[in-house]
């Protein structure tokens, strides 16, 4: 109990600084978006194919767009503090409802891609670090180079061409088929089937990164003095590599995973767009095109919330893995 007190204190301090940070992000975002030229009514009218000046003025008044900029921003900030992210101009729904309905698919896609990439990447990295001149090791190097260089939408399109068009194994886009399957298992299988290609596309990019990171980190740790000590103790190879080396090598992986998981939404925009995946990424993209300011601001606010929450969780996880963090 005595030990947990400083942890609680530092977590509370973190939360306080997080709230301040979120407020700053909110102000900055809304100023930027509201100050940008063009407004939702213009976009709406464009989609309708034109309207009379009277109708346009009426629409502007309904949405409060005729008021001065600082008033619009002020009203928005006031609402957000009360937990109201506003009303989508395009979907005619509260932004919170809209985000809630889209967060599921995005989380599903990101977690699948990120976690498979971390697991496979760590395994690849650990093996290739032990045999630095093996075929596997060279493969990891080439894979990470390719993964870093190839644009994510290109990989997505190539996978579609190969696995949906030439060999129609997986569906081209969407999250479900509209064949009205009703059983839960059937639905889950259907979603999983649709998930493969987008998750693979996103996962390959992450895999390139994590295999490289794991390899570098593992090589460094295997040279450490304490690994020599572990070997001099007569421990088994498995114990030396997985108990003594891996636990140390995994620290940078945890750091990056936390950071990247926080950036889920920006990371998934391209993949979601290519595969028409009904997640937050597509929603953000559409909101930009439609000048749907409240929705866009809501998503941006939600993203920053994810970033800080994930950073906090990473921090806590780090404390569990590395005892040195607790005292410093």
């Amino acid at each position: 109990m005595v030990k947990s007190a400083p942890v609680v204190k530092s977590v509370l301090r973190k939360i306080a600084s997080i709230l301040l940070l979120l407020l700053a992000v909110l102000v900055l975002n809304s100023v930027l978006i509201y100050a940008a030229p063009g407004d939702p009514v213009e976009a709406l009218v464009g989609e309708m194919g034109g309207a009379t000046p009277e109708l346009i003025a009426e629409l502007r008044a309904t949405y409060g767009l005729d008021r001065p900029l600082w008033q619009q921003i002020g009203v928005y900030l006031g609402n957000v503090v009360q937990g109201d992210l506003g009303h989508s101009l395009y979907y005619d729904q509260p932004v919170t409802t809209l985000i809630a309905s889209r967060i599921g698919p995005t989380l599903l896609l990101i977690t699948t891609a990120l976690f498979s990439a971390i697991i496979v990447g760590t395994i690849l990295g650990v093996f290739s670090a032990q045999r630095r001149n093996s075929t596997l090791s060279h493969f990891v190097t080439v894979l990470s180079l390719a993964g870093f260089s190839a644009p994510v939408f290109w990989i997505g399109i190539m996978l579609i061409l190969l696995l949906s068009v030439s060999f129609p194994i997986f569906p081209i886009s969407g999250m479900t088929s509209s064949d009205g399957t009703t059983s839960t298992l059937g639905y889950a299988m259907d979603v999983a089937h649709h998930l493969v290609l987008p998750a693979l596309t996103l996962g390959l990019i992450y895999l390139a990164f994590y295999s490289r990171l794991a390899r570098t980190s593992m090589i460094e740790v295997l040279e450490a003095d304490y690994i020599r000590t572990a070997r001099a103790k007569g421990l088994s190879r498995r114990s030396v590599v997985y108990k003594h080396a891996l636990r140390n090598a995994i620290l940078p992986i945890v750091t990056f995973a936390g950071l990247q998981f926080g950036q889920v939404i920006s990371g998934a925009v391209l993949v979601e767009t290519v595969f028409a995946w009904p997640g937050l990424g597509t929603l953000a993209f559409d909101s930009i095109l439609r000048r749907d300011t409240p929705t866009l601001l809501g998503i941006l606010f939600f993203s920053s919330l994810m970033v800080v929450v994930m950073n906090l969780l990473t921090d806590l996880l780090y404390r569990r893995i590395d005892p040195r963090i607790k005292t410093s």
Binding site: R228, T229, D322
Partner: peptide
């Protein structure tokens, strides 16, 4: 070994 500072694994008691 010569280096007690680095010869012990930092993550185990």
């Amino acid at each position: 070994f010569q280096e007690p500072m680095t010869s012990l694994n930092p993550v185990y008691s």
